[in-house]
Design a protein around this nucleic acid. Structure first.
Lengths: 193, 193
DNA sequence: TACGTTTACGAACGCCCGTTAGCAAATTTT
DNA sequence: AAAATTTGCTAACGGGCGTTCGTAAACGTA
């Protein structure tokens, strides 16, 4: 359970991520960040290219993790309901593994500049589209009674993506239990939970 | 259907709200705002006290609207499921009546400074607590099978509060239809919609 | 016509921002 | 031990920020 030794650059990314999440990207200054690390602001530039450089690294690293987790689900040959359950679990697992990075990924991506911003948009669209496909399959097979798969996926992601706001690793529910709870709630509803 | 003539101050609030929502509070400059209004930055201060002054007005005005809409639901003597349905409808109605203001209320409140920030936190806690009470009543009466009312309310609000991100007044669904869709999804689930 | 109010201008203020440059320790590699 | 690399400092840059100030048109009202 020992953590690998972080390079200075990784330390910077990590501390910046936590500041970006709690104060926002725009409201976090390089001097704040340096102070947190016990060095001077100018010293940061021995390790990083720019402030946005950090943001890009965090955002695309998280995007990769979401995709990797989801790709393991995609291939499986199971009913839509079960596949959605697995997708939710994968999503929750990534979200809870690194809540600060998840927060930056979800809320601060809009401070990316082009062409990173467009690339980010594209990746997110693909991810959502894959989820919509699962819901469409469930509708086609009669498993889901709903008709508007866009609306369903938006609601699904919305309810998942606030998790990082209140999730605490030391809380009483594990990521898997959270995933199960959310799956049940969304698939069966409050009345038939 | 004619709109009342806006005072200059109300115009400023309105334009600022839309900028705060699309660019964020911190990334919106007074010079941006002035440009949008066709005046100089200094001229703004003939009408407003400060940049945060605008933010406060938007946030607390929205908070009042949420409370007002919810208070009409609170008093009604109906089963928990029905009451939750009404609360969702009320919430959606406020959310969709002014999406930019809703966006600022939901995402930019953290740029409030004390004591406004604490006041805001308190109001939101009260709102959430009222929702939790409905869920608790539903659990006590056996109407809801779930056990963790905190989790339920967090998920409920999460799925509602992203509405402003994609809702367009000219879209094919009315606020009431959206409310009904969301209520069904949350109460009955994807499988029994 | 005179007067108070509303609305706006344009310049400037003090401050903070991201970033750069040149230099010097410290650390690692050879 | 020498060389190369990593890490950090101090000082400063150009620029943008929210805001203030004194002034002046424009406007509604008497």
């Amino acid at each position: 359970m020992s953590s690998a030794p972080l390079t200075r650059k990784e330390q910077i990314d990590q501390v910046a991520t936590s500041l970006f999440k709690s104060r926002g990207f725009a409201a976090t200054t390089m001097r704040d960040l340096a102070l947190e690390l016990g060095i001077e602001a100018g010293s940061l530039y021995s390790h990083i290219k720019s402030k946005e450089d950090i943001l890009q690294r965090v955002c695309f690293k998280m995007a990769d993790e979401f995709n990797a987790a989801f790709n393991e689900v995609k291939g499986q040959n199971v009913p839509a309901g079960e596949k959605l359950r697995l997708a939710v679990a994968a999503h929750v697992r990534v979200l809870t593994k690194n809540p600060p990075a998840a927060g930056v990924f979800l809320n601060e991506w809009r401070h990316l500049s082009e062409p990173s911003l467009s690339k980010f948009h594209d990746m997110r669209y693909q991810y959502e589209e894959s989820l919509r496909q699962i819901v469409r399959d469930g509708i086609a097979s009669g498993e889901f009674k709903v008709t508007d798969e866009k609306f369903v996926v938006l609601t699904l992601l919305s309810s998942l993506n606030w998790l990082h706001m209140w999730y605490k690793p030391e809380g009483k529910m594990s990521p898997d239990e959270i995933a199960e709870f959310l799956s049940n709630l969304l698939l069966n509803g409050l009345k038939n939970f």
